[in-house]
Design a protein around this nucleic acid. Structure first.
Lengths: 213, 213
DNA sequence: ATAAAAACAGGATGATCGACCTGTTAGGAA
DNA sequence: TTCCTAACAGGTCGATCATCCTGTTTTTAT
């Protein structure tokens, strides 16, 4: 007898429709499972159990697995990238400061957790971009948003004469690539070393382009 | 009626045992499929058809799928990394020259092919490193070999006074991470742009550390 | 009030997965 | 030659996969 049956018994067989809540529970469970196990390695049955929803409810909200994948990327992965990488850029003094503190907090977080499950966006990208063109587009859009935010910050720093002699577009690409790649290495080795080293290298690289730091 | 049946009929029911050949065909087919579609997304049946081997032969050479995965990493992926990244480092003038020409040839190759299927090592790493600890170890070993070769070259350049003021270990990590990450972005976007930009950024970064280039 | 639609329950479906089975043949050792 | 084992053939197995079905209840629209 599951939790909902108990509730229904106690409250005289009253069922409560909660579409937003059920949907949120499904997407939350899926985001967690996709990031830690991978999209392909996670079955719909496991997701139903994690979210405690019936097959009917699952099919109602997400008729196919790819719909759930798209929702996870759009609602959770893009939000994670925004909170982790884009938001800090708005309040910081300059791009290098933001990048360094982002690396620091991620390294600390992974050290505390004790294991490296990888960058959510990168994990989804690798699992998904083989076959499904639409999902690849959505993933690509998150990469673009990430790159645009970082690139724009470098450009602003240039205009404010904080930095000189750098190409905002390609530097932003390097930072994202270095982070994604370092996370992939860290995941394979289960060791934050690559992140620490890339953080240091990016710091010295950017310091050279910025005045008195 | 398959090819081998025809052959057997023509040659009076003679079957030819070719263990090395069959094994090679299986690993070749698996490497190609794993790199282009992913490890999890590829079924054993599809592999049998690609390699034109029976279920019995497949089970004889590779009792489980993970055995085949391990063989692909050990025999093909590590060799691909060695040929692409480690071998060029032996004959080149210095590390930056080698890195730049490696990026160039890969960019050219992808441009010709018209699509980006990603870095073989990175693809396997992401697909595999979730659940199976042994496969993660093997992948990790390839990363380590790659990093050691690159790191050793930077060290040699330092000793020969070609470069100064750089940490061979962390610079090597940055190069590998930037390449892996750029490849992941290129795969998601199906566009070599990220590789071109990272190539340029790495070139200017390394030029600053190397004398008169 | 009543009809329509959305939200959910619970189970069934065929397809495909990886693994494994029994039997047969080739090839080398004795 | 005899024998034994590796090499292979071809099929089967239960499990799991994603999807879809019918039926019931809740909510909304009119």
């Amino acid at each position: 007898m599951c939790e909902q049956d108990q509730l229904r018994t106690m409250t005289e067989n009253k069922r409560i429709n909660d579409p937003e809540g059920v949907r949120r529970r499904i997407v939350d469970a899926a985001y967690d499972a996709f990031v830690t196990q991978g999209y392909l390695a996670t079955g719909m049955l496991e997701l139903r159990e994690r979210a405690s929803v019936s097959g009917g409810a699952m099919a109602h909200h997400f008729p196919a697995k790819r719909d759930l994948g798209l929702a996870v990327i759009r609602d959770r992965v893009s939000e994670a990238v925004r909170q982790t990488w884009i938001e800090p850029l708005r309040t910081c003094a300059d791009a290098p400061t933001a990048i360094d503190s982002i690396f620091e907090s991620i390294i600390d977080e992974l050290t505390d957790k004790g294991r490296v499950s990888g960058c959510p966006l990168n994990n989804m990208a690798m699992d998904v971009s083989h076959h499904d063109a639409e999902m690849r587009e959505v993933v690509s859009a998150v990469f673009v948003a990430w790159h645009e935010a970082l690139s724009a910050k470098f450009e602003r720093d240039l205009e404010e004469k904080q930095a000189s002699g750098l190409d905002p577009h390609s530097v932003a690409t390097l930072v994202i690539a270095a982070y994604s790649g370092a996370m992939a290495m860290a995941k394979a080795r289960q060791d934050v070393g690559p992140l620490i080293e890339c953080r240091a290298e990016l710091a010295t690289l950017l310091t050279a382009k910025y005045r008195r730091r």
